[in-house]
Simulated scan of single mutants.
Amino acid sequence: MPGIAAPLWDRLTETVQSGWCPGLVAGVRINGQTEIFATGSLGLDQSDPMAEDTPFRISSLSKLIGGALAMSLVGDGTLGLDDEAGRWLPGLANLRVLATPDAPLTLTVPARGPVTVRHLLTFTAGLGVDLDPTPYVAATQDFLWGPNPPDMTPEEYLTRLGSLPLAYQPGERWMYHSSADVLSVLLAAAAVTPLDQLVQERISEPFGLTGTGFPTGTEHFPVVYAANDDGGLFEAVSYRDALAGPPKFASLGGGLVSTVPDFLRFLAGLADDTVLPAELRREMTADQLTSPQQVGVAEVAGPDESWGFMTAVQTGRGAPWSEPGMWGWAGGSGTSAAVYPNGDIGVVFTQRFLSSPQEHFDYFWKPFGEVRGNL
């Protein structure tokens, strides 16, 4: 008997058959009903079929798990939102700030205040991805950018980060990504527990996420591809190798592995307030930015998006299939997930890298919205 999402699955099958990617897995919860769907194969030269429980490197969807993990530590009093990051990471205690974002690295002023846990969760710590060609970008692009976890130990990462000024004053502007990596080190330090153990003890084990954690080297991943200018696919070898085994740097910015059933279960637990108490979940998934801070988000995700704690939050009308109050995010390796205000959820994991921050997942979300609208 066809499921309620059968028209969506038909569209995803067409997407794979068109050659857009060899295979994908998706899952939905609509009106309380959950369905999982897999189509295609693990690679262009592989006959092994994609399975519902195929593990994927989920890249920036890791941030959602990181946000929930951080809020669980806030909930039990291990750390506070306005605690100074320097309490656990002394190298970040007395940073200086560029006089202007495009200034030489030697032209700095004192920070007007400390970097806090809240700044890291909201990506307003003053560090991260900048799309303008500046001296700061030249000095940080090889270790603060990209889908791969930092190719260094946490200690080496913090030493290098602490030797540089911030691009903006703490709390001044949203900057993407690297606050999540800093938070990864801070959470382990605050809990006095390795990060992989924290993820297992507080997220994976309590909620039955048997395929979620950091890579071990035993996973049978799909081949991950990037696209040429003409649309042809080639293997993303650097990304494959960076997450082929236990990481040098455990990153909540983009280093986790999961499956669609796991991630759907995780998001359902968040939406239903079983992963976190309702008050903490509402805070995590509410707009936490002021209008000046939101400028950075608009550059990456558009004017109808803002940011909560490690998740995007929709504030405007957005695409026809979306709604204000939605929260979720996407990953550069071709993953996307979101929760609607009524608790409906969509998750799609593919094996094709996004070509730019502006690339969308309309092939999934548009028919998903049509299915919801027809019920």
Rank of each mutant, 00 (worst) to 15 (best):
W329H: 14
A312D: 07
Y340E: 07
V295F: 01
S333C: 13
E299D: 00
R282E: 11
V313K: 00
A319S: 11
A330T: 15
R281P: 11
R317L: 10
A286I: 03
Q293K: 06
W329A: 01
M310D: 04
S291L: 15
A330Y: 15
G318S: 09
A312V: 08
S291P: 13
W307T: 01
D287H: 04
G308I: 00
S291E: 15
V339F: 12
E323C: 12
R317Y: 05
A338K: 11
E323Q: 15
A298W: 01
E299L: 05
G332T: 09
A301D: 10
M326Y: 04
E305S: 11
G332E: 02
D287M: 05
M326C: 15
T290A: 10
P303M: 01
W327R: 07
A330D: 15
G302P: 15
G331N: 14
A330P: 12
Y340T: 10
W327E: 08
M310E: 09
G325C: 13
E299C: 00
W307H: 06
A338L: 14
Q293A: 12
S322E: 10
A338V: 09
T311M: 06
S291T: 15
Q294I: 09
W327K: 07
L289V: 08
A301T: 10
G302I: 01
P292S: 06
S322C: 08
V297A: 02
T315G: 04
A337H: 11
E323G: 08
V313F: 03
E323S: 15
E283W: 06
R282P: 11
E283L: 12
V300P: 00
L289F: 02
E283H: 10
Q288S: 09
A330I: 14
